[in-house]
Design a protein around this nucleic acid. Sequence first.
DNA 1: CAGTGGTCTAGACCACCGG
DNA 2: CGGTGGTCTAGACCACTGT
Lengths: 237, 237
Amino acid sequence: MTPDVTAPSRTTYRDVRAAILSRITDGTWGAGTILPSEMELAEAFGCARATVNRAMREIEEMGLVERKRKSGTRVRAAPVRQARFEIPLVGDEIAANGGTYRYALVSTATLPAPDWLRGRMGLGAGDRVVHVTAMHYADGAPHQFEDRWINATALPEVLEASFDKQGPTEWLIAAVPYSEVEIGLMAVAAEGPLCDHLGHAPGAPVFRVERTTWWQGQAITHVRLNHAPGYRMTTRY
Amino acid sequence: MTPDVTAPSRTTYRDVRAAILSRITDGTWGAGTILPSEMELAEAFGCARATVNRAMREIEEMGLVERKRKSGTRVRAAPVRQARFEIPLVGDEIAANGGTYRYALVSTATLPAPDWLRGRMGLGAGDRVVHVTAMHYADGAPHQFEDRWINATALPEVLEASFDKQGPTEWLIAAVPYSEVEIGLMAVAAEGPLCDHLGHAPGAPVFRVERTTWWQGQAITHVRLNHAPGYRMTTRY
DNA sequence: CAGTGGTCTAGACCACCGG
DNA sequence: CGGTGGTCTAGACCACTGT
């Protein structure tokens, strides 16, 4: 047997995905087009149907097509655009950008949960929380002001924790397994301690990330991450 | 043969995924743990390795585990948290919240690309752009001020387009196949026409989504979507 | 080198749903 | 009803990488 010299490796699901994607993005298969069935594509590409299926599932997940049994796969008119943003630890984010990270605890206190927090976290009247504020610096300049509340009823260990050297985020990661998270992004006006710590003028626009974390149905922590002027959250897709 | 009355259907990849997830989220498999190999899990769950593989791939995609050949699957210490935000058409977003949507064109103009835009979009000195500004209302109240620039050199049809009744986003979706997008989120201070249209006081914090769209290596459009006070972008995961 | 994940295959059965 | 996607299987080969 003379082996096939041009030895084309098998068709991979990446090949199929790329081929289909390019037909969609170059307009060959415009919005509303029904794509050939998986069987037909498998034959056309010379591969198994499972391979086409995986390619198609990924394209569907990207939001470019809509799949339904019997009716087939249709190119979406208005792609469900979804952007993915990485939510790294602030220290990692700064290091990734080549900066030097520094952490500084500002304050800690244990107190009954204020009303607005009880609503957010679904706490009862008797629940106590630990309130931590801290600063994160990049290359010596203020980068983020962290304002965090931790449910001491659900997580009594927090009463023993010190956040002198280690930020509350790191402590929580070690203390609590994976959890459900609700994130909100917004623009707010700088006021109070925020101005002092971030060097904002009062009323200046602050980019804020608000995050509430739940574990097994209980709210564990609520945090406001307030960013220094000029901060942008970006992504490509 | 008496058929199995309790007829357990086969183990699906969802079953496997749920089982593994619960062991991770309840702390049974804490951060750093090396999970059993796919073969072992397949045997344990009584299913094919491909089924375990699919479950594991999805868990990996959620950012909970890290997989490497030979070394196996390890539970991440600091989960690469990635939040997915839906980026719907503003009209759809308002309708989804039960509001009434209204669109109003504010201005259009054709002009040479200003310097800052040439940088963003990679345009040459001679390139012309169409500048469109428009308002989006929810239940009659200002919701979003859109400030968009479209590359007329790459997309000459835009010169004939009217944005009286239809927003530029809708027009672009119909005119350009799927494209690559760069998104930035930020907080800025309200100024100029923004104040008038959104009802912000000058200097008030504005949540802005900036988006640049590319198609086949060419920048097609750059848009700033400025939101009315109180706007939040939220997601859960 | 050997173990782990990465992927493909050929075949099968099933669930859904449009005509 | 019949076609389409959804999924599982058993087996195989491969690519990477720790030891």
